[in-house]
Design a binder for these strands. Structure first.
Length: 249
DNA sequence: AACAGGTTCAACCGCAGTTCA
DNA sequence: ATGAACTGCGGTTGAACCTGT
């Protein structure tokens, strides 16, 4: 039943890696390739656990790593990606060739955080720290617990924010069939556009219509003939065409 | 030169999801 | 189907380094 035990922690080194250990690890991976981290330390003659070897290789020894300072372009890209993805460092790193999640995480905590705060921007929410509390309220529509890499990619494309996790955000609805989580907050510096103006007339939209389900049996708003066919209006800060493009799993 | 306080970043830890016997 | 091991991730730690006094 099960597998043989994990690495023998009692007989492994800890702390900073020596030049010799680095050389052994590099030589082994050059000869045999990455993978099978559990058996690697023994095979490479290292007194380290596989986890430690993997971390050392990925964060420091990989030949494709770009060492040195982050450029302004990288800074801005990280800020933009973080505003969409939150602390999904591995996803952010995936969009910055040669940078590791650990490196980006450290850089965020030491440099970018401070940079944003000096600009008067909350690094967690990416909103102005002077913004009224009401404008920072976040409503969560949660369809599933996890955020997959694919979901995150779609959200970047659609401009949807996966960040803004606030502890007391109300969970609006939960549907186990959909692996999609939307977090919706009022648009910055303007009131939520929950109303659609048609020919000088303002029409309130029901939830079904705002999700693009006009003429649906669930529609409860008073648009004659379900005429809310105007595409691209804001629904709580999201363009109709954008959230429609999200693929439901 | 010596010390204290602040900053940086490599490495560790624990958890969650996945894989496999 | 079950449960242990594996893998990858994000949060945290602490030693090394930097800066100001």
């Amino acid at each position: 039943m099960g597998r043989s035990p994990c690495c023998e922690k009692a007989h492994t080194n800890k702390g900073a890696w020596t030049k010799e250990e680095d050389d052994r690890l590099i030589a082994y991976i050059r000869a045999h390739g990455e993978g099978c981290w559990r058996s690697l330390p023994k095979a490479a003659g290292l007194l380290r656990c596989g986890k430690s070897c993997r971390l050392r290789w990925i964060n420091y020894l990989r030949p494709d790593l770009k060492r040195g300072n982050f450029t302004d372009e990288e800074d801005e890209l990280i800020i933009k990606l973080h505003s969409h993805l939150g602390n999904k460092w591995s996803l952010i790193a995936g969009r910055l060739p040669g940078r590791t999640d650990n490196e980006i995480k450290n850089y965020w905590n030491t440099h970018i955080r401070r940079k944003l705060l000096s600009r008067g921007i909350d690094p967690t929410t990416h909103r102005s720290v002077n913004e009224p509390a009401s404008a920072r309220e976040v409503t969560t529509i949660s369809f599933a617990g996890s955020t997959t890499k694919e979901d995150a990619e779609k959200c970047i494309t659609a401009g949807i924010n996966l960040n803004n996790k606030e502890e007391n955000s109300p969970v609006f609805e939960r549907c186990p069939d959909l692996n999609l989580e939307l977090r919706i907050s009022p648009p910055y510096q303007q009131q939520a556009q929950e109303q659609l103006k048609t020919g000088g007339r303002t029409i309130s939209l029901c939830f079904a219509c705002s999700l693009g389900a006009q003429n649906n049996k669930d529609c409860s708003c008073n648009i004659e003939g379900g005429s809310s066919s105007n595409s691209g209006y804001d629904f709580l800060g999201l363009k109709t065409v954008e959230y429609r493009s999200l693929e439901m799993k």
